[in-house]
């Protein structure tokens, strides 16, 4: 009875050159994602794309038939950042994804999206934000399928649910830039080293287990979160939007695999086998099963444990 979830492309979390970024979105135009989130969510120093450039890109994608959402920074510290945010919030044409409560404050009274870095852990929070104009929420990434089921039962009328279903997981934000630190540089003189790591900089434990990915002030999982095998469950739970987070290579192929699985043209098991080699390190899905995020659980094994 529930409709088919729609595919969304999350904002690019890395710092790519303007040429690479615009070329990437030209390729996205021809993919089956219906919703495209754009904008810088990690670091305000990443300025190869200016405000007008983002709006021009939004126009290009909208004319190509995509639903465009402008994204705000997750960590807002400086007045200059608030100034830029106010401009985005007042754009008048596109929905804005709030990734901080400061953005919610500026957007309230108008329709807005709450990103996964806004802490919505229970239906009372969801209800309050819905009264302020929330149209769609992206579930915080550490919450699993069981909590999602509970949240869906208490979901307010008119609010869509989106799940981060593919990508390196955003795990933390800091004042410190870890990419600059890896180069012995202070953040104020970072020399834009993030440009050298289009999928983030992988961090390993001393026994060489790949563990995290440094992406400027953001820390991500080294492994790629993938809920491809949970699409059927998400459909049952009435998830409206499934988010794919961009990576430097093969994003269009990832989108294609999700799309074919959603259409029933590709079995989840086969899709997973095709996805795995496209990931920078490997897959994980523990959060969905209420376990440590870095764990990778086969769906069958998880069911037998339940």
């Amino acid at each position: 009875m529930n409709g088919q979830p729609r595919l969304a492309l999350g904002p690019v979390l890395y710092y790519w050159s303007k040429e690479e970024l615009l070329a990437f979105y030209e390729r996205i135009v021809d993919t089956p994602v219906e919703i495209v989130y754009i904008g810088e969510t990690v670091c305000s120093k990443r300025n190869l794309m200016r405000g007008d450039d983002w709006l021009a890109l939004a126009g290009r994608l909208a004319r190509a038939g995509k639903e465009v959402v402008l994204c705000s920074l997750a960590l807002l510290e400086a007045e200059s950042e608030l100034k830029r945010l106010r401009r985005f919030c007042a754009n008048g044409d596109y929905l804005v994804e709030a990734n901080d409560m400061g953005a919610v404050q500026l957007l309230k009274g108008h329709p807005f999206v709450a990103g996964h870095s806004v802490n919505i852990y229970n239906e009372r929070t969801l209800g309050l934000l819905a009264r302020l104009g929330l149209k769609r929420w992206v579930m915080p990434v550490e919450l699993g399928g069981e909590t999602l089921a509970e949240m869906q039962r208490g979901r307010p009328e008119g609010v869509e649910t989106e799940v981060f279903a593919y990508g390196r997981l955003p795990l933390a934000y800091s004042a410190r830039c870890f990419t600059a630190r890896a180069h012995n540089l202070p953040k104020d003189d970072c020399q834009y080293r993030c440009l050298d790591y289009p999928d983030g900089l992988t961090l390993s434990a001393q026994d060489d287990t790949r563990f995290l990915a440094l992406n400027g002030i953001q820390t991500q999982s080294a492994h790629t979160y993938s809920l491809l095998s949970e699409l059927e469950r998400m459909r049952e739970l009435g998830v409206d939007v499934v988010r794919i987070s961009p990576q430097a290579n093969h994003t269009e192929r990832v989108i294609g695999i999700f799309d074919r699985c959603l259409r029933g043209e590709l079995a989840a098991r086969d899709g997973e086998a095709q996805l795995e080699p496209l990931m920078p390190v490997g897959a994980c899905n523990g959060y969905w099963h209420g376990a440590a995020g870095m764990e990778g659980r086969a769906r069958d094994a998880a069911l037998s444990l339940a």
Binding site: N119, A172, S174, Y287, A292, G293
Partner: peptide
């Protein structure tokens, strides 16, 4: 705390348990 409090889930990534949850 090096990370923004309330927005760090490194702990649950490794153990399933974070300050938030």
């Amino acid at each position: 705390c090096v990370m923004v409090e309330g927005r760090c889930i490194l702990s649950s990534y490794a153990t399933g348990r974070s300050p938030n949850t």
